[in-house]
Design a protein around this nucleic acid. Sequence first.
DNA 1: CGTATTATTGACCACTCTCAAAAAACGTGG
DNA 2: CCACGTTTTTTGAGAGTGGTCAATAATACG
Lengths: 243, 243
Amino acid sequence: MPPEAVLEREQQAPAYVQCSRCAVSSVAFCAGLTAADVARLSGIAGQVQMPAHDTLFREGDAAEHLYTVIHGAVKLYKLLPDGRRQITAFLFPGDFFGLGVGGAYAYTAETLTPVRLCRFPRPKLDRLLAEAPSFENKLLALTIQDLAQAQEHMLLLGRKTAREKLATFLLRLSRGARRRGLAPSPVALPMSRSDIADHLGLTIETVSRTFTQLKREGVIGIPDLSHVILHQPEALRTIADGG
Amino acid sequence: MPPEAVLEREQQAPAYVQCSRCAVSSVAFCAGLTAADVARLSGIAGQVQMPAHDTLFREGDAAEHLYTVIHGAVKLYKLLPDGRRQITAFLFPGDFFGLGVGGAYAYTAETLTPVRLCRFPRPKLDRLLAEAPSFENKLLALTIQDLAQAQEHMLLLGRKTAREKLATFLLRLSRGARRRGLAPSPVALPMSRSDIADHLGLTIETVSRTFTQLKREGVIGIPDLSHVILHQPEALRTIADGG
DNA sequence: CGTATTATTGACCACTCTCAAAAAACGTGG
DNA sequence: CCACGTTTTTTGAGAGTGGTCAATAATACG
């Protein structure tokens, strides 16, 4: 049975979510939990679907839900008063988001594609966390991972050239796909050039020019706007770290 | 009694740490915990002292301890193979660090000044976390805060000008000092210009030039290399967000 | 006090940004 | 399904912020 069929079936049951049949159970928040714990989680989980380019919540909103991406892609970003934007992360199936600071979200969340999300209401989740330490353990481990990724991205933003930034970005997407059981090479780019620019601290023009440059060198191929073929992943790796 | 006297007394008792008399108990990891919990924490805590410019651990080392800064300042950084460096955070009394990913530290930690640290061995701490959920709660909350700060810094690195970066940096140091009960204005800079540059994604020359520029405008004063007076904090705030 | 290190200042350069136009992709309605 | 208009991306020319290289000044330290 293809994963799509499972998802569609679950879609029929918004009240009761069958985490045990979830397509992302192996990589997500619930990965590594005991069957009993997963059952408890599914008791408070709800599923939501959103169209592409929709705002899930804004920086400063009351943090009422924790989300896990089941299908589709999401971007998280912060804004300056004059509109300059920094996309802090792109999220894919298995990734979670929505932890607030002082009860408020610290960033805005927007869908890149139509998405299906698993959603946990904060009050219920907190009750669960208080009861079962394994949940909090997991949440802490995942947050530490996010923090490490954020630090890695600071290194990119503060110290890498445009060329190195783009190479790093493509490799990250490729590794992420592989981790989710997808092919590492035709990398899917569900985000716009503008999104990529705002993630890497560049302008769309520089992103475009650098793509073209890497293509001319034969390192990557660009069959269409939203796909990149990594012809020479080794070369990319060398470029990514300033080789 | 000045805080220094308290610290010196505690220094005499390395085996048993009296958290209840700790100078940073109001802002640190242990803040907000019950007296009983603090007592349990002090049972596994040890204190260490280190000279300035000393490496506490390196990226990739086994993560054997969790640290809280009691006195002094620490920097955390990541390196590229060619030596380019990104300082992800400066830490001051009350801040904690040392959470690893997959058992290894994700960054290098180095002292800026002579420091006194509170140190928790990972195995013992893990046992405590398993028993008392309040600890894990606190640790999660603090890690989420760190993540939010990291995201704020990504916005700085990716989207702010040199002038905005430096203004933001000075305001952060000032707010941090105020939070720790110190005067917000003569801001102490325990780090070198090179450290500031590697934190803000700039070169030392640009940091120096921008300091001079702000000084000429009368926004700040620089009595000596390691102190900055915020003459016009409002102006700084305007500059910081691109006013 | 002299030496080594760090910070500042200056001149010049280049990577990336800005502004602008052409090309490609997308969406919509006929 | 195609034609049209809109949006996004690419490409080009020129400019500017911040970087590089180098010399001077200030500071720290023995």
